[in-house]
């Protein structure tokens, strides 16, 4: 794509296409937002063009929303659990955010 879209990352990598952002996050801790109100934090070991991913040392957060039957207030519950290693199917991915580089 054109030069305007290019962006120099601190580690010298160039972001020319969106997947470069994921490539530059290999072996780093990333945040992944998934369909079904699921979020993951973990170390990115591998990915492919579908955004299938292998994450290690993962913390999963599942957000559960319920409506209180009496007050009609929304109750938001967050459940967390840890997994050593997991595979993420790419079609469930909404957003990936790499770590903040300092």
């Amino acid at each position: 794509m054109s030069d305007e879209g290019q962006k120099n990352n601190q580690d010298g990598g160039m972001v020319e296409e969106p997947l470069d952002l994921v490539r530059l996050s290999l072996d780093e801790n990333i945040y992944v937002k998934l369909k079904g109100d699921r979020e993951l934090y973990g170390k990115l070991h591998a990915y492919d063009q579908h955004l299938n991913m292998v994450l290690g040392n993962v913390e999963e957060t599942v957000t559960l929303r319920e409506i209180d039957e009496e007050t009609y207030e929304e109750i938001v519950k967050k459940e967390k659990r840890k997994m050593e290693m997991l595979f993420v199917r790419g079609d469930a991915v909404i957003l990936i955010s790499p770590p903040v580089r300092i």
Binding site: P18, L21, V22, G90, I94, L95, S97, P98
Partner: peptide, 11 residues
């Protein structure tokens, strides 16, 4: 807020 974000196109 995210510094950088990748959004999968199908969404």
């Amino acid at each position: 807020k995210y510094g950088d974000a990748f959004i999968r196109g199908n969404n």
